[in-house]
Design a binder for these strands. Structure first.
Lengths: 107, 107
DNA sequence: ATGACGTATACCCAATTGGCTATACGTTTG
DNA sequence: CAAACGTATAGCCAATTGGGTATACGTCAT
């Protein structure tokens, strides 16, 4: 159905990509070289994965001189939570204020 | 990292598979033919997808005569929720009792 | 201005994936 | 028991994917 939903699920399906997103969630604002360290793949591959994550709205990039700083857009996880919630079909109320919460989280 | 986590994310990455899981979440206990209707793919393909969902623990099958009834194992979504929760790094407490909740949900 | 650096793109390749048809296998029904 | 049915497997193929190297492009330092 949802175009965005599909992009998010697809983006997170790859372990390397999930790894990158995880690191960005933990440490936020990191350059490509910074991520390259534990990525286990080459720099072009990292850039490519970041591009996919960005397309899914999971990541944001900020250019500063010759550096590009990437950061996790955690609100994008709302898509995941929404879907999971719908599937579970319960405890909707528990998540009702999630969006606001996530918005507050992203500065 | 987690073998199971990877299987779950991978399984849900495909729209057809998500569609099958969604239907099982909504209507539970359905035969392959039952799912075949709106799947948009051939019967063997449905079976193959169900196999993948099963391997990821997202689905359970019960054999009855020549029929196989599939049902969603919603507890498997816990993997998704756990990961999302960890990534968000907040509102852990909101989900603390999720496992129990999900266990109660599954009959 | 030149060279090093950080990042992205282009291109290539092997592996995986998602679909199909044909078919096998068990179960039910006539 | 034979035919129909429900499901799973086998084998095939095109498309996608994830990785690599080479390279282009901008920025910073010398």
């Amino acid at each position: 159905m949802s175009q965005l939903q599909d992009a998010v699920f697809r983006a997170l399906a790859d372990p390397t990509r999930r790894g990158l997103f995880e690191r960005l969630c933990r440490q936020g604002d990191t350059t490509v070289v910074g991520l390259l360290a534990d990525a286990g793949v080459s720099q072009p591959v990292v850039s490519k994965h970041l591009k996919i994550l960005k397309a899914a709205g999971l990541v944001h990039d900020r250019h500063e001189g010759r550096y590009t700083y990437y950061s996790a857009r955690r609100e994008a996880l709302g898509t995941l939570v929404d879907w999971t919630t719908e599937m579970a079909g319960f405890w909707q109320d528990r998540f009702d204020d999630l969006d606001d919460l996530l918005k507050r989280m992203d500065q």
